[in-house]
């Protein structure tokens, strides 16, 4: 079992004729993902090296003709908010936005437009994220697929490479993963920890979830509150990056900033601990924490 993506996932790649879009479309296909279509407005019928998926002008065509149910977005930042809304309107159930550098106001508009649509089954992951992978089933994003191993531990992370690092450590320790989700490093993202934890809670193929947080915002605190709101089946362990980060400085990710005294790592670690979530002081400790949580 897994959440969000599996063998039934049929991917349309928005921005498939671009450098990143075509490269990662090939990588996904190589991993075994069903890449069924691509979209670049004005380039329908174009051929993309190493792929036999048809290219359309609109996501609607990719849904109607190729049966896409999931989109992954590699379009430039200025066009990305529109690409997300196009996929939502076309009736896709999952949109993964990889694009980095989208203006905050664009994402606020997307967030509230999606809220107005009120489709409870629609999920947006990202932006500024590595994507989603259910090892051995489907990879929708840019992560190196071969570091993963099928198993029963879920992962939700605000980071990219740090996630790979942790996944790699889990795999090396023999701990496989059900689904790994990079939710993105921006201040306004489609799905937060608390939007995804309930899905893992109801996934019988997941026993534990690793939360990888960082400075900025209060999503980790909300996740801690969710965990103790009532008795949970899954165990949760965490890692928080940025313990040594100075206030007021943006640490690479647009959302990684301690501002107005809020969002510091030590406060997050303290809150998680108080809610019974063990927090690793080094990513290398995570496999051990997981083993202790689900013996």
């Amino acid at each position: 079992m897994a959440i969000l993506v599996d063998e039934t996932t049929r991917v349309v790649v928005q921005g498939i004729t671009g450098r990143d879009g075509s490269f990662h479309a090939r990588q996904m296909k190589e991993y075994g993902t069903n890449v069924v279509a691509g979209v670049t407005p004005g380039k329908s019928g174009a051929a993309v090296d190493g792929l036999n998926a048809p290219v359309f002008d609109t996501v609607r065509q990719a849904v109607d003709v190729a049966g896409a149910n999931t989109s992954v977005i590699y379009v430039p930042a200025a066009a990305a908010a529109d690409a997300i809304l196009e996929s939502a309107e076309a009736g896709l159930r999952l949109v993964v936005c990889i694009t980095e550098g989208i203006p905050v106001n664009d994402m606020l508009r997307v967030h509230h437009a999606l809220a107005v649509r009120g489709d409870k089954n629609f999920v947006l992951i990202g932006p500024n994220c590595p994507g989603v992978i259910s090892p051995g089933k489907s990879k929708v994003g840019i992560m190196p697929g071969f570091i993963h191993k099928p198993g029963r531990v879920g992962l939700i992370s605000r980071s990219g490479t740090l996630t790979y690092e942790i996944v790699h450590a889990l795999t090396q320790a023999g701990v496989g993963q059900s689904t790994c989700i990079g939710i993105g490093g921006d201040p306004v993202i489609g799905s937060r920890f608390t939007d995804l934890l309930p899905r893992f809670e109801s996934d019988t193929g997941t026993d534990a979830v690793v939360l990888v947080g960082e400075i900025g915002g209060s999503d980790e605190e909300l996740a801690a509150a969710w965990y103790t709101e009532r008795k949970r089946r899954i165990r949760v362990v965490a890692f928080i990056a940025g313990v040594s980060a100075p206030p007021g400085k943006r640490m690479g990710h647009a959302g990684a900033i301690i501002s107005g005294g809020k969002g510091a790592a030590k406060d997050k670690i303290e809150t998680l601990g108080r809610h019974g979530i063990p927090v690793a002081s080094d990513p290398a400790q995570i496999p051990e924490l997981v083993r202790r949580a689900v013996p």
């Binding site: 996630t163 990888v212 400075i215 990710h253 790592a265």
Partner: peptide, 30 residues
């Protein structure tokens, strides 16, 4: 120097915990 913001942030943390003083944060990208 590291690749990926989260990894670099973690590197700063580990260096600081080891008693070192980082000169900078530099992310060369994924």
């Amino acid at each position: 120097i590291g690749n990926g913001a989260g990894l670099v942030m973690t590197t700063l943390d580990v260096v600081t915990a080891a008693g070192g003083r980082p000169a900078n944060f530099l992310d060369i990208g994924g």
